[in-house]
Design a binder for these strands. Structure first.
Length: 474
RNA sequence: GGCGGCUUGGCCAAGUGGUAAGGCGACGGCCUGCAAAGCCGUUAUUCUCCAGUUCAAAUCUGGAAGCCGCCUCCA
């Protein structure tokens, strides 16, 4: 089985072959840290988190770099608005980013470099580009000359002529071509700056990624990724800078995730239709959010709504409900070395361009099968059946390791929902006890009345042979 | 205006040439005092529309309609 990845550069899926056997070097464009993350940022980060986890699971040694853009107009503006130094602004939102992503069970990258830590690297590349006649300095600004790079447009499928016709580019007489973009921007009064051969200034937006990827991954690396909106101009410009500077192919595979939509429209700051991760997590379980984000293929849009979140929550609950039955048998769920059919199917789905949606589909088929087996063997469970169930449980947990799901002990999952809600557990237990007594004396009217009362408290009960369990509705 | 993508059952969603996964919902059944959970069954002869290629198309080609994205900061 081989891993196939959709490569934006080629416009098609192709077999993944790492540059160096057994190793993967991957660079992802992280956020510009000027405000809280919304769920759209969450999707990008979760998608690549899963991709990296999967690459590691199938045996690759992964070097994962995800940067923070910590100097930029928006950050500076934010600092001016709030009276904070721009680095205080970026620090604040980097901290928030980590809080949010930790909550979503996203693992840290191998390194998370910041643009301001690599100003020297940036200046070196800009100078190299000037020396090679690929860039030019004007009044303290430095621009990349798109005409000097014949492949300009190869990632996004555009050409410089079309863009001129588009006329949405600022006309700036100092530029040789309107599509030329800034590598270095001279400092305006009150702006932060660093000294450079071209005077006081700061880096343009794209150059930092060329500098940091070069620093940590070298001239050529395996995978570069980010949101679809970065294809142009950001990634196009990165390619131009890096390939012009080093005369080597920049990144082999380009992976771009689709957006989180609200009412079919892209969630974004400018449209104002965004929901912060913090806000979403107040209402939904973090794993439900991940389940939601992974329920569609990563390149497709995914529509955020109350009903889609309810669906994801229900899906998560269904997995935990089944896992709980496993926990009742084994006491503690565990992963075994041996893998089963489910794991094989999971790998098949993931090998096909990280198809988490399909993977989750097969998971549910297995869930049904496991429940069926459990139902059939309710009274007595043979060792054969037990080992079968154990294998399934193990596969589910392994899949959870890749998707970042099912990390909680099932009984704890349901218990934590109780403590997280506002219900009075003592009161609930008392009502359930009363109901059991009513049922024992065949006073079903009273028993049903109590159940209705509990229902009104958002509690659902299940009568088992020897006990009654209760859950908080999701 | 340029470039790209999407359109699958009531809803969500996989599926890139071999005869429509899965989830939610609905309905019927098993289980239950009744429920809930779980299980079983039913729920798209059909994949926006039109034409074409093919023994065979949701999947390929051409055209139409609708929706969306990028071209300006954006995950």
């Amino acid at each position: 089985m081989t891993l196939r990845i959709y490569n934006t550069l080629k416009g098609t899926k192709e077999e993944f072959k790492p540059i160096e056997e057994g190793k993967v070097k991957i660079y992802i464009c992280g956020p510009t840290v000027y405000d809280s993350c919304h769920i759209g940022h969450g999707r990008a980060v979760v998608v690549f988190d899963v991709i990296v986890r999967y690459l590691e699971t199938i045996g690759y040694d992964v070097t994962y770099i995800r940067n923070f853009t910590d100097v930029d107009d928006k950050i500076i503006n934010r600092g001016n608005e709030t009276g904070m130094h721009f680095l205080e602004v970026s620090e604040k939102y980097i901290k928030e980013f980590h809080e949010d992503m930790d909550a979503l069970n996203v693992r840290r990258a191998t390194r998370e470099p910041r643009a301001t830590e690599h100003i020297d690297d940036i200046i070196d590349i800009v100078q190299l580009l000037i020396d090679k006649d690929k860039a030019y300095a004007v009044d303290g600004d430095v621009y990349f000359s798109v005409d000097s790079f014949k492949d300009y447009g190869k990632l996004s499928g555009r050409n410089v002529e079309d863009m001129k016709a588009g006329a949405r580019i600022d006309i700036d007489d100092r530029k040789k071509n309107p599509a030329d973009f800034a590598l270095w921007k001279s400092a305006k009064p009150e702006e932060p700056f660093w000294d450079s051969p071209w005077g006081k200034g700061r880096p343009g937006w794209h150059i930092e990624c060329s500098a940091m990827s070069y620093r940590f991954l070298g001239e050529t690396f395996d995978i570069h990724g980010g949101g679809k909106d970065l294809i142009f101009p950001h990634h196009e410009n990165e390619i131009a800078q890096s390939e012009a500077a080093f005369d080597k192919e920049f990144a082999k595979y380009w992976i771009h995730n689709g957006f989180v939509n609200i009412n079919k429209e892209k969630m974004s700051k400018s449209l104002g239709n965004f929901l912060t991760i913090k806000k979403v997590l107040k209402e939904y379980h973090p794993e439900a959010v991940r389940m939601f984000l992974l329920s569609n293929h990563y390149r497709s849009p995914v529509d955020f709504s109350e009903s889609s979140m309810a669906e994801a929550s229900a899906a998560l609950e269904r997995v935990y409900t089944t896992l709980l039955r496993g926990e009742e048998i084994f006491g503690q769920l565990s992963v075994t070395e041996e893998t089963g059919e489910l794991w094989k199917n999971f790998k098949t789905s993931m090998d096909d361009d990280f198809n988490t949606a399909q993977a989750i589909g097969t998971l549910f088929e297995v869930l049904r099968k496991m429940n069926r087996t459990l139902d059939k063997n309710r009274d007595e469970i043979s060792d054969d059946v037990k080992s079968d169930i154990q294998k399934t449980v193990s596969d589910i947990l392994k899949i959870g390791d890749v998707l970042g799901l099912f990390t909680t002990k099932p009984s704890d999952y349901f218990e934590s929902r109780k403590s997280a809600s506002s219900v009075d557990e003592v009161e609930v237990e008392a009502l359930i006890k009363e109901r059991r007594e009513a049922r024992a004396s065949k006073d079903f009217a009273r028993a049903d009345a109590i159940r209705d009362e509990l229902d009104a408290m958002n509690i659902v009960i299940e009568d088992k042979a020897d006990k009654t369990v209760w859950k908080v509705k999701s």
